[in-house]
Design a protein around this nucleic acid. Structure first.
Length: 345
DNA sequence: AATTCAAACAACCGCTCCAAT
DNA sequence: GATTGGAGCGGTTGTTTGAAT
């Protein structure tokens, strides 16, 4: 049995709100409040609108002290930090930005901020693939190659790695002492990424050193050489914050870290890292003829569908919260733990 | 000046959550 | 414990606006 609709779809007006409708709604709510029942509200005041539409109009536009546009650099930073930390939980992000609505932030992110952050990738991809004649924006016209991990998850991972390495080459990804123990399958997954890494002829320390003791790259110095605060006895930070020892503030139980990290000079391999990242989800976009690179597939019933299984498993476990912050799976799997980092854009 | 295209924004849709019954 | 229905949320779509040709 399906749910009853919240309103009579045939008798409600859709589309842009007129100034008269705005005035009616605003006047009523300012005087009487919503009465705790949005569904009944439009009928009370004679608006032929769905209650949900009234609520949205009030929250996103008519409510006092709403700011539109003109996002500051500081707001950009906060949005980026929180997006990487908690994903597309726009309401929580909006709660950190007085006067901003979740819808506004969501639109801003999707239309501008994301491009601002990832713009370099596109440009770099154009450079890198120019000689191959391949359109960097064209993955063969088949997005199924990037199936598995959700675009949001990939995007956040890429953003995180890119920003983290660009700003702090001594970060988590470059520091074996900080790596959590991975599930054997995850290790294999990363091995395959290493394989692809070699295939793309990218001498990328991030990937080369993902597996301690298995890297072909020169051994890293001791952790202390990278960060005097780190020693072998330091456990993995359960706050997942390797940059800042301050407590992580929480909103609705979600860790929020808005601290900024001092920007450090980009190291020489950053261009290579970007190049790696430019191939969005390179490990998950293997063409048919590249699949043998995933040797572990042979050990898992010989099916390349297992790659999809892994990705789906990952996604489905995250899906319950519709976000990457599904802490139980992330913490237990331990793969992408440090999402509480701050950035300066 | 007309047309095309992309960016920006507003609004809708469908889903989940949760309190009330 | 099961059901119901409103609130809230995030993804998506539709419309408007402005730049480029």
């Amino acid at each position: 049995m399906g749910r009853a609709p919240c309103c009579d779809k045939a008798n409600v007006k859709k589309g842009p709100w007129s100034p008269e409708e705005d005035a009616t709604l605003k006047a009523y709510i300012e005087e009487y409040g919503t009465g705790g029942n949005w569904i009944a509200l439009p009928q009370k005041i004679g608006l032929k609108r769905c209650g949900k539409s009234c609520r949205l109009r009030w929250l996103n536009y008519l409510r006092p002290n709403i700011k539109h546009g003109g996002f500051s650099e500081e707001e950009d930073n906060i949005i980026c930090n929180l997006y990487i930390s908690i994903g597309s939980r726009w309401s929580i992000i909006a709660a950190q930005l007085p006067g901003r609505t979740d819808n506004d932030i969501k639109n801003y992110w999707n239309t501008r901020l994301k491009k601002k952050l990832l713009g370099r990738r596109k440009q770099s991809a154009n450079n890198g693939l120019a000689s191959s004649g391949q359109d960097p924006n064209d993955n063969g016209g088949d997005d199924s190659h990037s199936q598995g991990l959700s675009s949001s998850a990939l995007e956040r991972l890429q953003l995180h790695m890119q920003l983290q390495s660009l700003q702090n080459p001594l970060s988590f990804y470059n520091n074996p002492a900080l790596w959590p123990k991975l599930h054997p399958f995850q290790e294999k997954m990363i091995q395959s990424l290493q394989s692809l890494n070699g295939m793309h002829n990218i001498n990328n320390p991030v990937m080369q050193n993902v597996l301690p003791g298995q890297s072909t790259a020169p051994p890293l110095k001791s952790p202390q050489d990278y960060n005097p605060q780190i020693n072998d006895s330091i456990p993995i930070n359960t706050n997942n914050n390797f940059m800042d020892t301050n407590p992580v503030p929480k909103v609705n139980g979600v860790n929020i870290d808005q601290s900024n990290v001092t920007t450090q000079p980009a190291s020489t391999f950053q261009a290579e890292l970007e190049s790696f990242l430019n191939n969005k989800g390179v490990g998950f976009t293997a063409q048919e003829d590249q699949l043998p690179q995933f040797e572990y597939l042979n050990t898992m019933n010989g099916s390349k569908d297992n790659l999809l299984w892994w990705a789906n498993e990952f996604d489905s476990k995250s899906a319950s919260s519709n976000s990457w912050d599904s802490t139980p799976v992330l913490q237990s799997e331990g793969m992408f733990q440090d999402f509480e980092l701050g950035y300066n854009l």
